[in-house]
């Protein structure tokens, strides 16, 4: 049985440092759609072993409810990535996040290791999902090939800090990321997988965070990584459909149902014909709203 679902709500993916037992203990109380335990940049080189053991034991014993469980491994070229996979695949991770993905071959190499480990432990081959983080100019230019590199991929993500360094610039108002975001989004959509945006590091700047979240939602992203629980509620609010849009979506679906009952292949609302993209958008909006209501049960 697959541990992951390709089509699910991924508005928020919360980073949790892999060597922080307090945050690992508390993470189930936050309403993030996905939790991402990090074995890479947030863990000192001398503590890679302890973090790996901590995440392994946490995945094996703690109950994280219906959240998607992602682990960011170290890159394979470091030698640490395979050691991470050896631990987290048997521990039951839903999705492996591959960092610094520059090419389709990086995804293929990682998938081979995952399949080998699944086989070794008698786990159904293909049951572990993957996502690829793109963090370089090369990766952005290869985004389409990366997005199509494996059936296990649930999405591709932008890792902006390394990317802007590679571009010889810094994070600013978002214009510096426009090309990368557009490439990643189009590559993800061409492969039918999720497009996930980078972190917003200034946790005290809620206004800036909301502006960035609004921008990436407008572009078409499914969601965004968050580094602090305080960022989850405002992010979900940005992704919540407005009442006006929701009413229109329900009216469209009612008009479609009426047309079906009348045996008519053509539906219209207020004199305007409803074509297929309009129906798809309405269905997505309603699904997002209903999923949001379910996931946010108890959220502020």
């Amino acid at each position: 049985m697959k541990r992951y679902t390709k089509d699910r709500l991924r508005r928020s993916m919360m980073f949790v440092p892999g060597n922080n037992p307090g945050m690992i203990r508390d993470v189930h109380i936050y309403p993030a759609d996905s939790i991402m335990f990090d074995l890479e940049d947030s863990v000192a080189y001398t503590e890679k072993d302890t973090a790996r053991l901590l995440v392994y034991n946490a995945l094996k014993t703690l109950n994280f409810g219906n959240k998607e469980i992602v682990v960011r491994i170290n890159d394979l070229s470091s030698g640490l990535g395979v050691m991470d996979l050896e631990a987290i695949v048997p521990a039951g991770v839903h999705v492996v996040r591959l960092p610094k993905t520059d090419s389709a071959q990086d995804v293929i190499d990682c998938e081979k290791e995952i399949a080998r480990i699944e086989r070794k432990h008698g786990i159904e081959v293909g049951s572990t999902g993957m996502m690829a983080a793109i963090e370089s100019a090369n990766g952005v230019l290869n985004a389409r090939e990366i997005a199509h590199a494996s059936d296990r991929l649930i999405g591709i993500a932008l890792g902006a800090e390394d990317y802007v360094t590679d571009l010889k610039t810094t994070r600013a108002d978002g214009i510096e990321l426009l090309f990368a975001r557009s490439m990643i989004l189009n590559a993800a959509r061409s492969a039918g997988i999720a497009a996930l945006d980078t972190v917003y590091s200034d946790v005290n700047n809620e206004e800036g965070f909301i502006a960035e979240a609004t921008l990436i939602k407008k572009l078409g992203f499914d969601g965004k990584s968050v580094i602090n629980p305080r960022q989850i509620a405002p992010l979900h609010k940005v992704f919540m459909p407005s009442e006006k849009d929701l009413n229109k979506a329900y009216a469209i679906m009612e008009a479609i149902e009426d047309a079906k009952k009348r045996g008519s292949g053509v539906a219209s609302l207020k004199g305007k014909m409803i074509d297929k993209p309009v129906v798809l958008r309405a269905q997505r909006l309603i699904a997002l709203h209903e999923a949001g209501l379910r996931m946010d049960d108890g959220e502020d």
Binding site: P21, I24, R25, T50, L53, L54, Y56, N57, A58, K60, T61, L62
Partner: peptide, 8 residues
């Protein structure tokens, strides 16, 4: 937690 004790 127990899982942390095991890990350490």
């Amino acid at each position: 937690l127990d899982c942390t004790i095991r890990a350490r």
